[in-house]
């Protein structure tokens, strides 16, 4: 892979993010808000909350596998090639990671330190 192709890929990702900027801003604001609430509320259990976040993230990723194709006007049955599945898992993994980050402060607020 040449430098040009890497640069092209970086630019495609950038333009994609810019095209979806409202969604990204909403997610970032929501994440900041949740972390802010957890801190303001006092004594968040970050370590135990992380476990909740990871478990929640796994659930979000699993659910995303079934939801993503229909959200973008396709069907799960359209996937019949390992490359398709690898990409779907990767995309679901990204949503799972976002879910984990959002659920971490929620878990930290509501899980007991003990």
């Amino acid at each position: 892979m040449s430098f040009y192709e890497v640069w092209l890929a970086v630019n495609i990702v950038w333009e994609y993010l810019m095209a979806n900027l409202p969604v990204i801003i909403i997610l970032l604001v929501a994440i900041a808000f949740l972390f802010g609430i957890a801190v303001v509320k006092g004594s968040p259990a970050w370590r135990k909350g992380l476990r909740v976040g990871i478990l929640g993230g796994i659930v979000v990723a699993l659910v995303s596998i079934f939801i993503i194709p229909s959200v973008i006007d396709s069907k799960l049955s359209d996937l019949n090639y390992w490359v398709d599945w690898a990409n779907l898992f990767a995309i679901a993994g990204i949503w799972g990671a976002i879910g984990a980050v959002m659920l971490w402060p929620v878990g930290a607020m509501f899980v007991s330190r003990d």
Binding site: L8, N11, V13, W14, E15, L79, N80, D84
Partner: peptide, 20 residues
């Protein structure tokens, strides 16, 4: 190979490529 990934690239990523 009939591919969902190829379709996804076409409908989601080509426009950003054109913009770049």
């Amino acid at each position: 190979q009939d591919s969902w990934f190829a379709w996804l690239m076409k409908v989601q990523l080509l426009k950003p490529a054109y913009m770049a």
